[in-house]
Every structure is written in C-alpha cells, then in structure tokens.
Design a binder for these strands. Structure first.
Lengths: 218, 218
DNA sequence: TTTGCTTTAATTGTCGACAATATAGGCGTA
DNA sequence: TACGCCTATATTGTCGACAATTAAAGCAAA
C-alpha cells in the first residue's frame, strides 16, 4: 500500500529508525537533551552508532546539535509549526505542479482509486485510516513530482517533523470532508494536466490545514 | 559584508568545510568515489571525523552514500540541474514572499544599498563581483524570510550544490543587466510589502536564470 | 549571603583496532 | 572459451579507550 519501504541495512539504520520513532511519538520528549552514553546503553549499541543516528536526526530537523555541548530534541512551538507549514506549502505546491506534468496516466488513475477507497472509509466512519490516507495521498503526489530534491526534502526531511507535531499536539480528526473535497479537486487538476491550478489548490489545501491547526492551538 | 560567518569549532567542522570546498570547486571531481581511509590520510585526521564529514555532505546533497558500499560525489547532469532549480524556485519564491512580510524597514534599506553598490560595480565592468553580489542578494532575502526551515534548506542545503554547478559548468558572466533589473523589481515589491508580487518576481527571476543556463548547456 | 575562582566530575570529540560486508581475482568445470 | 564458485583482499561498520572541552561542585573572600 505505502510506496515507502525503508529497510534498515546497518545497525546505525536500525538505531536511527528507532530513535526517530521514539522522538516523533514523544517517548523521548520534545526539548529534552540527548545523552550519547545514556542512549548507547538504552539501545544496546556503541556511542559511534548513536552519534551517527543523532547526526541523521539533525538532518531531519528533529534534533539540534551544538559543538562540544550536545544534542537536544527540537521544541514544539506555534511559531515553529507555522514556519514548517510555510516551507511545506512551497515545496508541496511545486510538487503538485510537477506531478501534473510528470505523473503517468496510470499513476494518476491509481491516485484516483486511492481517493475512492479513502472515501469509502470516511463514509464508514473509520477515522483511524483518515490520517494514514491523507499522508499516503500527499506522499504519492510528492513522489509523482519525480524531483529527487523535493522528495528528499519532504519525505526524509520535513514530514517526520510534521508528524511529530500531529502526534504530540494531537491534531487529527476533523476537517475530514472538506479536506477530502480538496484532495478530489487536486487530483482533477492533475488529471487535466493543469499545473498552475494543481499548485494553487495544493497550496491552499495546506494553508487551510495550517489555519485549522492554528485555530485549535488557541 | 557577507552575513554568513561559518566558523569551525571542532576538527570535524574543519574537515567538513574543507571537503565541501574541494567538492564544490571540483578538486574532488564529481561522480568520484570517496575512500574513507584515503581521505583520512589526505586531511590528516581519523576515519571517524571523515565519516562525520561525509554524513554532513550527504545532508547537503553533495554526496550519496550507500550502506556497506561507500559514498560518491554527486554527478552533475542536466536533469539534476533542472530539478535543483525547480526546488530552488519554490523555496526562494516563498522566501521572497515572507521577506516582504517580515523584513524590517532598515533591512530593506540595506538591501537597496547593496543593489546600488552592485550597480556601480556592474557599470564599472567588475564582473568578478557580479557573482558574489548576486549570491549576497539572494542570501539576504532568504535570511529576511526569518523562516529557519527555508534558511536551513537553502543555505546549508541547496546553495552549495548550486555553486558546484556554477563553478564546474562555468556559468557566470552574462545576463548581468537583465538580472540586475529583476533584482531591482524584487526589492521594489518587498519595499511595497507586496508579498504576492515579490514571490512571483523571484520565481520568474530564477526561472529565467534556469532557462538561460539550459540554453547554454546545449 | 553572595560573588568569583579553582578544582572535580561528566560529556563530547577523536583515535586506532577489530568485525562484517562487498569487491576482485583465480581456479575449476562444463 | 565461458560460466560459476571460492578464496583473498580491500572497504565499510562497529567498538572501547583516551583526549579535550564543558558543566558542576566546593571553597574562599568580600
């Protein structure tokens, strides 16, 4: 179902995935300090692999490192969330534009099918899959852009941070039907190969989402 | 002059900066394999710091690493350049939009002064400073966005790769006067706090630049 | 009591050695 | 000769120990 199958080759991979998950899920709490020795005993590996994992987490913008001092998990702030959505808006907007240009007819058809199954689930009240479905939708468009920089920046970079905000500030649930309509219109634009419209609709979709979240934080 | 003063704290920092420079300048040639032992003797440090430097270079999209196989400097291809400019267009477009919103009047005034000195240099035929001036202009707007994700993605991420293309495919020089006018109009939009126009003009400016480069590659 | 300095402890940075994996070459067989 | 297998070599991954830097504790003086 999900086109993203990250598999761990080395031990550092495994530790990185584990730590990333723990941070996103809040098991390692936001803003906390990451002690290398402590983590090495916790995950049962040497400090070297913990250090490599931390370096990669820094690339994801999930932790911040200061020389000779150490690494901390990022703090979740309203400003940070807004800035994150601004970056996301620009990148995913361009991704939608390029998807309208570069996705094959077959890929677009599969995207449409995803939307249909998603619709059935929403109608059935399965709000659990709503989150996963939304993520999957956005992933496909990002991959559909076929631009490796956009893919890397979003999938390996910002998306886990977005998920961290979602999980820890607990914002999934509402906005289901309207978001679904927005998805539908985006696919329609992509199907019509209307790059301009696809980008505009994606940007508005993300902007609405941002505003919805902002409203709920207050 | 340049607001970016990266200073090396640890030895890994120094090695990272050195390697990055060597890659961008082409001293370590594009597409070549990076041997950890070889580099550790070359730079006179242990393999651990070379590994850390390589990890950071991967974050910059300057090298690609494969588990148990090793790291290679990225290859410079026409497709890669186009994709790079697409990502840049979206990010810097958003940066210009936010700069129009978030830069202080004083910062805008300084930006305008930069443009004036730049104009004098162009008139005097100092094509050497044209490159640096252009980079400085874009840097200021990126920083002016005050969005840490945009700043990080561009300054620490894509900009060195862009520079690598510029240096190694040798594309500086022409397009001076037109680019200068485009810069002027962008500043005018920012000064008027016209976010929409600032973004549009920046995107076109980068798109023109991309097309100009593409044309020269053929 | 509070401020500043000195000493001590803890953490990060760096190193060389060993283990695991991948590549290259040689050998044997079809 | 060509193909596949096996061995040998080289490279990357991982580890524990030491060095350098920072944070903390204790003491002394105002």
């Amino acid at each position: 179902m999900n086109a993203l199958i990250e598999q761990a080759i080395t031990g550092a991979d495994k530790t990185f995935f584990q730590m990333r998950s723990d941070i996103v899920e809040g098991e390692i709490e936001a803003g906390s300090k990451l002690s290398e020795t402590e983590l090495s005993t916790k995950y049962g590996v040497s400090r070297a692999v913990v250090r490599e994992a931390i370096n990669r987490l820094e690339s994801c913008h999930l932790v911040e490192r200061k020389p000779n001092i150490g690494a901390r998990v990022v703090a979740l702030t309203p400003e940070g969330l807004i800035q994150l959505y601004q970056a996301r808006e620009s990148l995913e907007g361009m991704a939608a534009r390029l998807a309208a240009k570069n996705m094959t007819d077959e890929e677009i058809e599969q995207l449409n099918e995803l939307l249909n199954t998603h619709f059935q689930e929403v109608k059935g009240g399965e709000t659990y899959y709503q989150e996963a479905g939304d993520v999957d939708f956005h992933y496909r468009i990002i991959l559909g852009s076929k631009n490796k920089h956009l893919i890397s920046l979003l999938v390996n970079g910002l998306y886990h941070l977005i998920r961290m905000y979602r999980v820890q500030l607990g914002m999934a649930g509402p906005r289901v039907s309207t978001a679904f309509d927005e998805h539908k219109n985006i696919v329609k634009a992509i199907r019509n190969r209307d790059e301009e419209l696809a980008e505009m609709l994606m940007r508005r979709h993300i902007l609405y989402s941002q505003q919805n979240i902002e409203a709920r934080l207050q």
